[in-house]
Amino acid sequence: MKTIQLRRYTLVEGEYDAFVSWWGEWMPKVRPAAGFAIEFAYGLRETSEFVWAVSAEGDEAAFLALEKVYMASDARAEAFAGVPQRVAEHNIRFVQDFFPGR
């Protein structure tokens, strides 16, 4: 069993390219190292949106426990050090996978 979290962001106007560059440099390193898998990541330049999903083995409680450790990690702190706020709005929810085992 794995738990998937869908993360939808509306980015600060004018920050799309900087955000995508930062995300591409850091998230593929720090999230997997913390026990997560990145399911997908898509950007919509025209509307300054970024949508991605991250998963972890286990149920929601296991995901949240892993996320708590990740949020307090040195690796995450390094990834966010000196980075301005580029996300104007975020919507983060757990979702169901209707095509497991693809």
Rank of each mutant, 00 (worst) to 15 (best):
V30F: 12
V20Q: 04
G35L: 02
F40Q: 07
S48R: 12
G43H: 07
F36S: 05
A34I: 02
E49R: 15
A34P: 11
A33G: 11
E39L: 08
P32I: 00
I38C: 03
G35P: 03
P28A: 07
E25A: 12
M27W: 08
F40A: 13
T47Y: 10
E46A: 15
Y42K: 13
Y42E: 14
K29A: 13
A33E: 11
A18P: 00
F40W: 11
V30Q: 05
F19Q: 07
L44Q: 12
W23D: 04
F40I: 03
F19V: 05
Y42H: 15
V30Y: 06
F19H: 11
R31L: 14
E39V: 12
E49S: 12
F19T: 06
V30H: 07
S48P: 00
F40P: 01
A34E: 09
G24V: 04
E25Y: 06
G24M: 04
K29G: 01
W23M: 06
S21T: 15
V30R: 03
E25D: 12
L44F: 14
R45D: 03
W22K: 05
G43L: 04
A34T: 07
S21C: 06
S21F: 02
R31M: 11
R31A: 13
F50D: 07
E39Q: 10
E49K: 15
G24H: 05
A18D: 14
W23A: 14
L44I: 14
A34D: 05
W23K: 05
F36W: 03
A33R: 07
W26Q: 11
V20T: 11
P28H: 06
G43T: 08
P28C: 02
M27L: 12
T47L: 10
I38Q: 08
G43W: 02
F50P: 02
S48M: 02
A41I: 04
F50Q: 07
E39G: 11
S21A: 13
W26D: 02
A33W: 02
A33V: 02
E25R: 12
F36C: 03
M27V: 09
W23F: 15
F36H: 09
R31P: 00
W23L: 08
F36L: 04
V20M: 08
P32M: 01
K29H: 05
I38M: 10
F40T: 12
R45Y: 04
V30S: 04
E46D: 14
P32E: 01
F36E: 01
G43V: 12
E49A: 11
F19C: 08
R31C: 09
V30N: 06
F36N: 03
A34K: 09
M27F: 12
L44K: 13
M27T: 07
W23N: 09
E25Q: 10
T47N: 13
A33Y: 00
F50M: 09
G43N: 11
E46R: 13
V30P: 03
E25M: 08
T47I: 08
W26V: 05
A34Y: 08
W26C: 06
W22F: 06
W22V: 10
G35N: 06
A41P: 01
Y42A: 15
